[in-house]
Nucleic acid binder design. Sequence first.
DNA 1: TTGTAGGCGTTATCAT
DNA 2: ATGATAACGCCTACAA
Lengths: 339, 339
Amino acid sequence: MPRRVTIDDVARLAEVHKATVSRALNAQTRDQVNAETLKRVKRAARQLGYVPNAMARGLRTSKSMTIGVIIPDLMNPIFPPIIRGIEHVLQAQGYTVLIANTDSHDEVEVSAFESLLQRRVDGFILATGRLDDQPVVEEAATADVPVVLVNRDSGVGRYPLVSGDNARGIELAVTHLVELGHPRIIHVAGPPNFSTTRTRAEAFEAAATRAGVEHDTIYATALSTDAGFEAAEKLLSDNGVAPSALVAGNDLVALGLIRRLRVQGLRCPDEVSVVGFNDMPFAGDFWPPLTTVRMPLREIGAEAARLLLRGIEAGEQEAATLTLPVSLVVRGSTGPFRS
Amino acid sequence: MPRRVTIDDVARLAEVHKATVSRALNAQTRDQVNAETLKRVKRAARQLGYVPNAMARGLRTSKSMTIGVIIPDLMNPIFPPIIRGIEHVLQAQGYTVLIANTDSHDEVEVSAFESLLQRRVDGFILATGRLDDQPVVEEAATADVPVVLVNRDSGVGRYPLVSGDNARGIELAVTHLVELGHPRIIHVAGPPNFSTTRTRAEAFEAAATRAGVEHDTIYATALSTDAGFEAAEKLLSDNGVAPSALVAGNDLVALGLIRRLRVQGLRCPDEVSVVGFNDMPFAGDFWPPLTTVRMPLREIGAEAARLLLRGIEAGEQEAATLTLPVSLVVRGSTGPFRS
DNA sequence: TTGTAGGCGTTATCAT
DNA sequence: ATGATAACGCCTACAA
């Protein structure tokens, strides 16, 4: 591998000092340099195939123009749209996004964070919020690095959070099921250590009570199809009376529920109605097409990025919570109650 | 923001020279330092919350321990598993993965590549291969940076490629449909500038001819549900005789085809059988569950990462092509021919 | 086993 | 408008 071209090489060819090259090649300082020389420098740079070294620059400027994004599970289809929103905003500002996927593994989360910190990312977007002990958020606080939480809140620290309106979403779901005549609704929530779970479960309790409908909440062990499948299992074995309407913790859980119900010979929506949450990609292609609460995933990512950028520029962060509006998408997994 | 802790700060507190700190903190050179001092250094580092600066290190070592991954479309569900495979291998070796998503936009691809090059990534994994003009691959060649292609081959340059056995996959699909008695099979291929499209289309031609079945190939404008939908549209309007069996360019196209057929009142698999390609996540949850060719996506990513690492270590790359075995997953979207 | 010194490629601050 | 110089934080011969 031939040694990389440096700013000195360009300077030599253009017959100017490297400081001039630096000025010529940076938009900020470009106007400080003579039009003639600018042209010469540019030509030399192109001719040599000069590529500025971001590490050297970052070392000097103590900015990496890099943002770390930590995701609990890339395989969950809600994250690609969120990431896209993040990237869209950040790329436009010249930032590069470093994505780390933890597979919901705590120790991976810590090491990913550490690794990103070593790279001196200018800020973090964390989608891994948990209400219980979360070392990374604490570390972020001591490291004094800008952080924005996305989707899920964290129990510790006070960081900005961008999410959809979980409470409103549940309310819409419950109202929809009540209007369909369902006398009894079960909420199959996610793990209790997610803020989303808590908010949704509370909203469910409130909405169902207000509607005067019989209701109950059970907790899945994760926000996955498998966990949904298991939850349905428990539901079917525990309960004498099979419920006619289910509000799932998210779309994956909904999918798992439906799968298990089908095994039991229970048709959705004929015998059981199921509402999902998130409106993840392809939610409309499943069988049956999922009725679900639409989260503006892309926008959530974009807003998180904007909030982070603002925090970085300001040098300090306001602990604002940004809640974006949601809506109910009625498709095929819900139908009228039939006794 | 308080100034970051440097190796000098640690050295001062531990009362040693910074060179000793450096040695103590690097696994490679740790054994060169006295056990006592090692302990002191470690304690000092922890006490100060020292985080090594990867940019400074990279500048010095001219290695970034960073790999750039360029993906055409993160929203395509085949990529998360591939990325996971890549990350799994790379993280274990201390590398950080920089993911750039181009949304199939050429100019974004170039700028992402440029940006990654500036960061002095130690190598690239490109999932954006195209047979026609592809500036990035050429740039990679002139920049003399290690590259591994994943899934799709490129027309220019000679880089290692890791993919599934496309030809064999199509063969399995055709055989399956022929065994079901279908007398006429249409291949709805992807865009012709993808190597996968070409390989699959050729294999289709060969397999169908060999089986002595009537057949034809049409090309979708993209590998997406929308493009599949449109292709079905064309198929239905052009053709007097509706085909009874379709081999799609990938699962997304298959989904689009099925969607459009349903609009037409054509039931899958009762009236039309459809085979997908890739076995992307959730392929089994659609309606009907997709019969498709299973690509070992995770393994493809992992092998690409291994190949790249080998190339980086060796300082040169063998232009090997690694083709991983595929299989047919028979689910609900294919059924016997009914005249 | 530890210290010394130089340099990786840039940019910022001077001085010219 | 341009040049000279130092410094960002780290690693690695080499010397002690």
